[in-house]
Design a protein around this nucleic acid. Structure first.
Length: 576
RNA sequence: CGGGGAGUAGCUCAGCCCGGUAGAGCACUACGUUCGGGACGUAGGGGUCGCAGGUUCAAAUCCUGUCUCCCCGACCA
């Protein structure tokens, strides 16, 4: 392809709103343009990368016996009401009406549609197992779209669904999917880690997220270097602690202290010269209408995801200021666990186990208490694991310690069990003639997000450094002087020869200065570069360079350059 | 939804405090000089200063309202 025909509108300046490398560089490299908040046009270079990622996904999924199909984007509301998710999914779902005022949604995911298909078409255990997938645009009206293509409202996703007659078959396919995903991300050149995760709105018990490790990732991953345990911060389990006090503990008296206007742990800690870990943080939540008080150590954050799953609540939110006043009799910031109304369920986090002489809010505006003793002043209804873990916490599986890092979630696989098949009456006849719901697996992979994650991991100050398997083109040829017939002819010859070798080649045929061409080549990040200039041609050579190590130039005759580049490309093309 | 900020040329922004001819850089067009790491000169095209009211002889600038966008917190591939 010739640059002048390729439509690559590069920019010298960074877009004002781009905060992360992938967003900034994709816009500057002429790959991405915004249409509206979280909605983007994929320009030709990005489109080529996306097609390549898709090809890798198809190859690996076909290897494990999954079959591609295409499901509708427009979903009738009735289907979502059947699964109960028309309400649960809430405003995250883009909704619209047809000319008869009938409600529809733009598909944010396809469990309902595929389950509907399965219940109509799959009758017998003889039809199973069956694994289907599609690669399609998804719509999610995200609260806060961000970071360009990394968190968009319209994005490309591969979603797969499998149907099984028994647990063993589902587990086996889940394992195959796990391995297929690992191969896909390896081939895309990503440094990733599979971790245990919370299941969120999709549901089911067992599930893994595939995280690309990156500073700019939105998820926190905790991993144990000793045993290999790894989980998201929303899922990572604390070590359950015995909650009795040590036998030699001498209780302090409960004392009330005035703390005017000091509502945060940090402010009160400063005034009293106590450490945050000596505090009890008391938070009030509304869980399906019931008010729950959560006690956690003052220096830790309560995980709403863990609390939600502990309580088995469908909807969980922090109680509003009015409710806090009603329950505690004090303004927000002065809540304590003791003396709350008897009907309030109190959940204590393990982080408080074995701790006495605590500081807490006094349930009176502008007052805190010291010397609070669990068991004497407050009796929790239950102990649970509801805080977000962080680096340095003990591993729940061994004696090791957890390390904290950030990641971009590029894939998520779920063992759904019978959640959807039961809700939607999707059944088959087993070999004993009994009607049973399908066991289902569901497997998501963000195609556009993989492209963004690849840029996050592979870039430098000058631009993108594409891994060969997903690069828009494999080789770029830079004729430095379009006025020199010899330069142009040589570049054209190399261009033709590369294409004849089956190498995907971009020829920068713009009548621009060398400096611009070098700068744009760095920005766009094609892995191999052949520079054709008067200087080299005077010695009968051209220069070959690789984007990943662009200071290393090799000078060689044009014919050798083609062989050199073609063999390098063939070596790296399949990735992994 | 809550909290901050911004709307001026295609892009990045200055001008606003202190009202008086609408600007710079990049991009674009033409010509010339240049030509191996984002050249330079000359000439040019491009704006109802987000929108609606108000104050004023006069509003990008002051006031009111409104819309939109961006950033920080609750979502997920």
């Amino acid at each position: 392809m010739r640059w002048t025909r390729a439509f690559v509108p590069t920019l010298k300046e960074d877009p004002a709103d781009a905060e992360v490398a992938s967003h900034r560089l994709m816009v500057r490299a002429g790959m991405l343009r915004p249409l509206a908040r979280g909605i983007y046009s994929y320009l030709p270079l990005l489109q080529r990368t996306l097609r390549k990622i898709e090809r890798i996904v198809r190859e690996e999924l076909e290897r494990i016996g999954a079959t591609e199909l295409m499901l509708p984007i427009l979903h009738p509301a009735g289907l979502w009401r059947e699964s109960g998710r028309w309400e649960v999914y809430g405003p995250l779902m883009m909704r619209l009406e047809d000319r008869h005022d009938r409600p529809y949604a733009l598909g944010p995911t396809h469990e309902e549609v595929i389950t509907d298909l399965a219940r109509h078409e799959l009758r017998s255990y003889r039809d199973l197992p069956l694994s289907l997938f599609q690669i399609q645009t998804k719509f999610r009206d995200e609260i806060r779209p961000r970071f360009g293509i990394m968190r968009a409202r319209e994005f490309l996703m591969k979603d797969g669904y499998s149907f099984h007659a028994d647990e063993e078959s589902l587990r086996e396919h889940y394992r195959e999917y796990f391995d297929a995903y690992s191969r896909i991300f390896e081939r895309c050149g990503l440094d990733f880690r599979a971790v245990e995760a919370a299941s969120g709105a999709i549901g089911g018990e067992v599930n893994h997220e595939f995280m690309v490790l990156a500073e700019t990732g939105e998820s926190v991953v905790l991993a144990c270097g000793a045993c290999g345990y790894a989980a998201t911060s929303e899922r990572a389990e604390a070590v359950p602690a015995a909650h009795g006090l040590p036998p030699d503990h001498a209780p302090e008296p409960l004392e009330r202290v005035e703390t005017p206007g000091r509502t945060t742990v940090a402010e009160v800690a400063e005034q009293l010269a106590r450490e945050p870990h000596e505090f009890v943080k008391t938070l009030l939540f509304e869980a399906d209408g019931e008010t729950v008080a959560v006690m956690a150590r003052g220096d830790r954050e309560v995980s709403e995801a863990k609390l939600e799953s502990h309580l088995g609540a469908a909807r969980l939110e922090m109680a509003g200021p009015a409710r806090v006043r009603e329950v505690t009799g004090a303004e927000v910031g002065f809540a304590g666990p003791h003396g709350l109304p008897g009907d309030i369920r109190i959940v204590a986090d393990f982080s408080l186990a074995g701790r006495g002489d605590l500081v807490a809010g006094a349930n009176e505006t502008d007052f805190h208490v010291t010397g609070l003793e669990i068991g004497r002043d407050v009796e929790p209804d239950e102990w649970a694991d509801v805080i977000e873990l962080r680096g340095g916490d003990p591993c729940p599986r061994c004696d090791g310690e957890l390390d904290e890092s950030r990641g971009i979630e590029v894939g998520h696989i779920f063992d759904l069990g019978t959640k959807y098949s039961e809700a939607m009456g999707a059944t088959f006849l087993d070999d004993a003639g009994e009607e049973r719901p399908f066991l289902m697996g569901c497997y998501g992979l963000g195609v556009t997000r993989v492209a963004a994650a690849a840029v996050e991991q592979h870039h430098d100050d000058d631009g993108i450094v594409w891994p060969v398997p997903i690069a828009p083109y494999e080789v770029e040829i830079l004729p430095l002087n379009m006025d020199s017939a010899e330069v142009v002819d040589t570049a054209e010859r190399i261009y033709d020869a590369c294409r004849a070798e089956g190498v995907e080649t971009l020829l920068d045929d713009r009548d621009d200065r060398a400096g611009s061409k070098f700068a744009d080549a760095d920005l766009v990040g094609i892995p191999c570069r052949v520079v054709v200039g008067d200087r080299g041609l005077a010695d009968g050579v051209v220069e070959v360079a690789f984007r990943a190590a662009k200071r290393d130039l090799e000078r060689m005759p044009p014919e050798d350059a083609v062989d050199h580049v073609a063999s390098r490309v063939r070596l790296e093309r399949s990735g992994g």
